[in-house]
Simulated assay, not measured.
Amino acid sequence: MANRKVCIVGVGKIAVDQHVPAIDASPDWELAATVSRKGSVEGIPTFRDFDVLLSERPDIEVISLCLPPQPRFQYARKALKAGRHVMLEKPPGQTLSEVHDLQRLAEEAGVTLFATWHSRMGKGVAGAKAFLAGKEVTGGKITWKEDVRHWHPGQEWVFEPGGLGVFDPGINALSILTEILPKPVHVTRAELDFPDGRQTPIAARVEFSRGVTMELDWLQTGPQTWDMEIHTTEGSAVLKFGGNELWIDGQQQPAAEIEEYPALYARMADLVENGRSDVDLSPLTHVADAMTLGRRNVVAPFAF
């Protein structure tokens, strides 16, 4: 089968760092065009208007949306209505209802919709899920601390409504948690720190059922922390480096070989080939619950 043609919409940091290399290295895909107001990829046709792309390039059957979540729904809606398969960078939308609407549109159009969670493709995640299967969880701790100035330099949208704030990285942890636990948990309490004058939190502490807790911080400099530990009556699993290193009862485990974004594009190829969609909204549900239950603290102003 010939490589499927894909268009990246939104040529920003995540597209350049992850999506473009993953597509270039894939035996399944050809990057045929991009849509971006400012960015471009050398040697690839660039469109400034998404409607023009949809009109002039019917040969491109897959749209990979790397835009911030705020405008993503309208682009996804247009693509699905035009009969194109759609990949959604995380989070899949600003709200749960937006993505439910996209699911309906994809089903009506008979095309694939894939809400991607790249951290689920971490090299230790499948091993952790296999270890925890059938076990009784007695507690757990998520510690996700990073530097927003490094990962989102000058990107004001992360602090605007719909940008999720510290839950933008925190949802990566939640995507792993919802993938590996043998039974689901729910948010019971949350405390959220909002910088004075900002619309989304910069730090959070969240408590879940089954004794699981989460601490998020977007102001950590130096070494970054993306760790998770899950305890059971039959031992403990620890995931480090965003799910890419697995330790069970103190012993490091073999890791999968494929990187996160190549794994996502391999998954998308399989979904399109078999006429299926993959839309799991449980990580975004936890964020919505934390925002609903969270006690709000106003903290020092933040500026990039």
Score class of each variant (00 low, 15 high):
A109T: 00
L102G: 03
H118W: 11
G124A: 06
A115P: 00
Q74G: 08
L53K: 10
P71Y: 03
T95M: 08
G83Y: 11
K90G: 08
P71W: 02
V99I: 15
W117D: 03
M87D: 12
C66Q: 15
A79P: 01
S119G: 08
I63T: 05
P91N: 03
G93I: 09
W117L: 12
K78I: 05
P69L: 11
V99D: 04
P69T: 09
V111Y: 03
V125H: 00
L67M: 15
T116D: 08
S64F: 07
R77H: 11
S64V: 09
R57H: 02
P69V: 15
G83A: 07
L88G: 02
H118M: 06
K81R: 15
G93H: 08
H85Q: 04
A79D: 05
G83K: 05
E61M: 04
P58N: 07
C66G: 14
S64Q: 07
S119P: 00
L54F: 02
L102K: 02
L96F: 09
A82H: 05
R57A: 01
D101G: 14
V86G: 06
R120N: 02
H100V: 08
A115K: 02
R72L: 10
Y75F: 15
L67F: 12
R84Q: 04
E89V: 10
A79E: 07
R104I: 13
V125S: 00
G124Q: 00
K78W: 06
G110L: 11
A109P: 03
R120T: 10
P69R: 01
L54E: 01
V62C: 06
E89S: 07
S119R: 11
E98D: 14
R104G: 08
I63K: 07
M121F: 14
Q94E: 12
Q70P: 10
S55C: 00
V125N: 00
A106Y: 05
K78D: 12
Q103D: 03
G93L: 13
H100F: 11
R104A: 13
L53V: 13
G93Q: 08
S119Q: 13
K81M: 14
P69H: 05
T95R: 13
K123V: 10
A82G: 08
G122V: 09
Q103E: 15
I63Q: 04
R84L: 06
R84W: 05
A109Y: 05
L53R: 11
L113N: 00
M87H: 10
Y75I: 13
V99R: 00
Q74D: 14
Q103K: 15
D51E: 07
T116Y: 01
Y75N: 13
M87Q: 12
L102E: 05
S64T: 09
L105F: 06
M87I: 13
K78E: 12
P91F: 14
Q74P: 01
